Amino acid sequence: MSIRHSLLALLHEGPRYGYRLKSEFEDRTGASWPLNIGQVYTTLDRLERDDLVRKEGADGEGHVIYRITAKGQTEVSSWFSSPVSRAAPPRNELAIKLALGLTLPGVDVGAIIQAQRGVSIRALQDYTKARRDTAAQHRPADTARLLVLDSLIFQTEAEVRWLDLCEARLMQLANPPR
């Protein structure tokens, strides 16, 4: 996830201070990916270093206000117009855990699969309930949260299907064809 580009996108609407950026990011993404405020300010420092934002001074309450630069506007426009690359998929901790577990003695990969399936199904239930509750409110502003929840539901459904496949492969290993 690109915090860098997310903050630039929010600043594209207008100047903001760090905590407001954090709050708006979490509100607009349905609080699915909470941000650490330290990460926000570290990212803002890097954006300033790269001439993508500049400090505008304080707002009277001690908040340092940031404004996007022309270079930052170009960067965020480019981000929105470019597809997300699939060339280097993000690391999947669960896939790594299962792959390593299969190659090390004494690791009960079946137990790992079962434990993860339970966590994934509970998450799927939570996401589905949150989606149902959000959709029932019929507010146009909730569309962004619904999109995020749909994405999380689809990803979690895919993970459960993949865990089923992993379990089937384990059974094949335990009972090879004759």
Rank of each mutant, 00 (worst) to 15 (best):
G30Y: 01
L102F: 11
E61Y: 13
G110C: 02
A111K: 14
A136L: 07
R49E: 14
A130Q: 04
Q114A: 13
G118N: 13
S77N: 15
L7Q: 02
S85N: 04
A88L: 14
D59P: 01
R49W: 08
F154I: 08
A115D: 15
E26R: 00
E93V: 12
S78M: 08
T143E: 13
S81C: 10
M171G: 07
R20G: 02
P90N: 04
L98A: 02
G14N: 06
A70D: 13
E157V: 10
I121K: 09
E167D: 13
E75T: 09
E75K: 05
K55G: 15
L98T: 00
E13S: 14
A9I: 06
L11D: 02
I3H: 06
Q73C: 08
A87Q: 12
D126K: 04
A130P: 02
M1Q: 10
E75N: 01
Q39T: 15
D45V: 08
S77W: 08
I68A: 04
A115S: 12
V119G: 07
Q114I: 07
R67N: 06
T128L: 02
A31T: 03
G72Q: 01
A136W: 04
T143P: 03
Y19F: 14
P15A: 09
P105L: 07
D59C: 02
D150R: 05
L149D: 06
P177H: 01
Y41E: 09
R49P: 05
C166A: 14
V107P: 05
L102H: 14
I113T: 10
T42V: 13
I112T: 13
L7G: 01
H5F: 07
W33N: 14
Q73M: 13
A58N: 13
T29F: 11
Q155V: 05
L47N: 03
I37S: 12
P177G: 03
F80T: 09
Q116G: 08
V148T: 09
L102N: 14
Y127W: 11
P89F: 03
R169T: 10
A130Y: 00
R67K: 11
A9G: 12
G72R: 01
T156V: 00
W33E: 15
Y66Q: 00
I153F: 02
R178V: 11
A135V: 08
F154D: 14
R28F: 06
A123G: 03
L104C: 07
N175P: 01
D164T: 09
D164M: 10
L52W: 00
G72H: 01
E157K: 11
Y66I: 01
V119Y: 10
G62Y: 09
N175A: 11
N92Y: 12
D27T: 08
V119W: 09
